[in-house]
């Protein structure tokens, strides 16, 4: 398959105006195995749009290209005491377009709140923009927020205007192992409900049982006091954000209310990774187990879809609300009427 790699927004615009056929937009390519195949004629890599165009430490904002690796932005922000306060890796365009991580705890910064605006290009090569570079603006409709979760199927982003936050002065990880489902769910719920919850919070169930892992951040006095007061043993950082499928197995990604986790885990077997914001991944043994889980999830108010497994099954999941589905299809039709981005 042809792969093209524009190095400037103008090159991307020209490329799209030339009508190259069906296009799959990619960043670093790290998430392609989580998307359904859609028969693209051309792969357009945005990896070359990787500049930090503007970094304003005093305003706590920056403008970056979508192809900038998250790690490079982190490295640039570290010396000025700032950070992009959400999870996720790969390129920044991929991070927002696929929204696989986002907030790591209840009420944490989500991609929605960090993406202040963007410059984009429609499938026919029309450049446009939405939002602003400042931390607060309600001028115009927030079309830029449609980047989040779009999987590159609505438009290409060529500049992202991001909100930054001060890097915490201290942090400490903790881990509780060997919990049964009930105890783990209860502890998870309690930690999540704190006035200042852990900055990251995970419930990890595997064949050995459940673990609660998290990270408190803030001033040193606060972080130390939290671990002591809550009797949480300090631990090494936890970096697992996704599950890998076992041979023949699949992975579901979804959302669930924290209060429903205990019941859900009792009903659905398999490796399970839950974050503080209610997003989870569930690894199933095979397609039949996946289908059984998808039938069970609505009982617990949970929604999910397949992100790993046989390519043809990726994207299938619990049914969407009919009205929302109509809007999603309408938006796709409105922004990319010829279905160029696949």
């Amino acid at each position: 398959m042809t792969e093209l790699a524009p190095r400037t927004p103008a090159e991307l615009t020209e490329l799209l105006r030339a009508r190259p056929g069906r296009v799959r937009l990619v960043g670093g390519g790290s998430r392609q195995d989580r998307l359904p195949p859609r028969g693209a004629a051309v792969v357009v890599s945005l990896r070359g749009l990787d500049g930090i165009e503007r970094l304003e430490p005093g305003d706590q904002t920056c403008t970056v290209g979508p192809g900038l690796p998250r790690a490079e932005l982190d490295a640039a922000l570290h010396p000025v005491g700032l950070e992009l306060p959400c999870g996720g890796d790969g390129t920044l365009g991929g991070l927002f377009a696929h929204d696989p991580v986002g907030a790591m705890t209840a009420g944490g910064s989500s991609p929605r709140s960090l993406l202040l605006g963007l410059d984009g290009v429609l499938a026919d090569g029309t450049p446009w923009k939405s939002g602003a570079r400042v931390v607060k603006s309600v001028a115009g409709f927030d079309v830029h927020k449609l980047l989040v979760g779009s999987n590159g199927r609505l438009f290409a982003a060529v500049r992202l205007h991001l909100r930054l936050r001060p890097r915490p002065r201290a942090e400490a990880w903790f881990r509780l192992d060997g919990l049964d489902v009930g105890a783990a769910a209860e502890r998870f719920l309690a930690l999540r409900s704190l006035a200042v919850p852990p900055r990251e919070l995970h419930l990890d169930r595997d064949a050995r049982g459940c673990a609660i892992v998290g990270r408190f951040t803030g001033r040193a006095t606060f972080v130390c006091e939290r671990l002591r007061a809550l009797a949480l043993p300090e631990a090494r950082p936890f970096a697992q954000l996704h599950l890998e499928p076992t041979p023949g197995g699949e992975v579901l990604a979804g959302i669930v209310l924290a209060s429903q986790v205990a019941a859900l885990l009792a009903a659905v077997p398999g490796r399970f990774l839950l974050r503080g914001d209610g997003r989870f991944e569930l690894a199933t043994a095979d397609a039949d187990a996946t289908d059984a889980a998808l039938l069970q999830l609505p009982r617990f108010g949970a929604e999910a879809c397949i992100v790993r497994g046989a390519p043809a099954r990726r994207g299938h999941g619990t049914p969407l609300d009919a009205g929302a589905r109509r809007l999603l299809e309408g938006l796709r039709q409105a922004l990319d009427p010829d279905g160029v981005f696949v």
Partner: peptide, 26 residues
């Protein structure tokens, strides 16, 4: 017609657009 955008647990990842985010401020 009725449409339910997001819900108490938020918006379904990773194949769901942020419709509540778009609606807010419209």
């Amino acid at each position: 017609e009725l449409a339910r955008l997001g819900g108490p647990a938020g918006t379904r990842p990773p194949h769901g657009l942020d419709l509540p985010g778009l609606f807010c401020g419209s």
